[in-house]
Design a protein around this nucleic acid. Sequence first.
DNA 1: TACCGATAATTCGGTGTACGAACTCACGGC
DNA 2: GCCGTGAGTTCGTACACCGAATTATCGGTA
Lengths: 143, 143
Amino acid sequence: MGLSTAMVRNAFLVNAAYSENSREYGFSPQQGQLLCILRSQPYGMGELGAVLGLAKSSVTGLVDRLERGGLVRREPDPADSRAVRVALTARGGKIADQFYTETRERILGLAAGLTDAERETLAALLARIADENNVSVIFMDLD
Amino acid sequence: MGLSTAMVRNAFLVNAAYSENSREYGFSPQQGQLLCILRSQPYGMGELGAVLGLAKSSVTGLVDRLERGGLVRREPDPADSRAVRVALTARGGKIADQFYTETRERILGLAAGLTDAERETLAALLARIADENNVSVIFMDLD
DNA sequence: TACCGATAATTCGGTGTACGAACTCACGGC
DNA sequence: GCCGTGAGTTCGTACACCGAATTATCGGTA
């Protein structure tokens, strides 16, 4: 199996894990992704678009729906009254952490057949790729 | 960076590559994915749902739109008159090959900073994960 | 101070994605 | 010849995206 094929299939597995777990929580994969991003800090709408690779107008609705569900809140930006800071609510923070942890486990489970050394090698190589393509900070432990 | 984080970020990169390339061709990522799957052989609607992890009713519309664009065709299954075989048209086959090749290059480009040996190691590890989680056959060279 | 281009975000209209439930129709065993 | 099962479609609903147009503020400049 060539590298590109292996990468595509792994992306498919990760997407599926993400989707299934989101579904169990009653939200869409995109909403789950946004919750994970907000775990580290609040973001402005424009920033979210940049991080997610979406048009600003797409972010509006995404945040709307999470806000309607009480997981997220729009706060006025103290330094710029045009801007808005999107932050997790108390409930949203709890759910986001739980969702993150479960998703993390599910994804690690995909690599359960590898030895510790292999997992370490894999993590290092994938991290190189991520770094060299300056991916958005999309999923991370908070420690 | 932990393994799960690295995997999620790489999936994000692959998704983005897929999306951007699809967009250049004027179709959605899902449509591009379907075209790549059909490169190897025709599939029934139910099979497609299983391969893609979608409900049957979702596949109907996906195929409808590609058929409207003349990239795909529904053929009657000679052995079962309830069933349908979805196949690439001549034009669809050309476009699918071109799309596949470009996407492949784009994804390999993500790993451009790795040495040949590293790429080989990475491919082997990812292939193990794919095999052990019996992923659908979603992206592949035809040789 | 008054102006004006740039920027943050929303609104709007349109298309695509996805689901489950209900339906049609052919298959195939009995 | 009947009937349960399986293949696909239809329908209604909700979400995900986008680009273009809009509103309101920011900040530099005359």
